[in-house]
Amino acid sequence: MISGRTLAQGAGCEDKMSRLYIDEVSCCYLSEEDYRALGLSDGMNLLLTSPHGSAVLRAGVDKGLPKGMVFIPMGPWANMLTGTDTKGCGMPGFKGVEVEVTPTDEKVLDIRELMLRGR
C-alpha cells in the first residue's frame, strides 16, 4: 500500500470536514486487474488489514497503478494502516506497507466514528 497526495485530497486538506475531502481520503485505489480479480464493482467496500491496524474503505480503480499495489490518498484512513516505527529518522512508513485486501459488506465509518473508534 502506498499513500500520496491527490488534487481533491489537497483541495480539502484545509477543509477537513468537507464531504469532498472525506470521500477522497476514504477511498482506496487498485489496478484494473486486481479490481476485476476481486470481483469489485461501483459502490463496493474493501477491508484493508495491515500489521498495524485495519479499516474499511470504498474501492476504486486507478489505471496508472500496477498489479498488486493499493493507493490511498493521504489522510486518516491510510493512517489506520501505517505503523509508528520511524527507523530512527522521525518518518513513519507511509509507503510500502503490506496490506491484505478483502471485499466486505461493512460500511465505511464516518470521520468521527473512525477517529474515536475504540475510545
Partner: peptide
C-alpha cells in the same frame, strides 16, 4: 489526527491538546 499513524493519534488522545487553527 489525520496525518500521523494511528498509534500516534492514540497517544494524542490520551493527553491534553490545545488546537490553534482557523478551521
Amino acid at each position: 489526527a489525520s496525518n500521523l499513524p494511528r498509534g500516534c493519534v492514540e497517544a494524542l488522545a490520551e493527553m491534553p491538546v490545545i488546537q490553534i487553527d482557523p478551521f
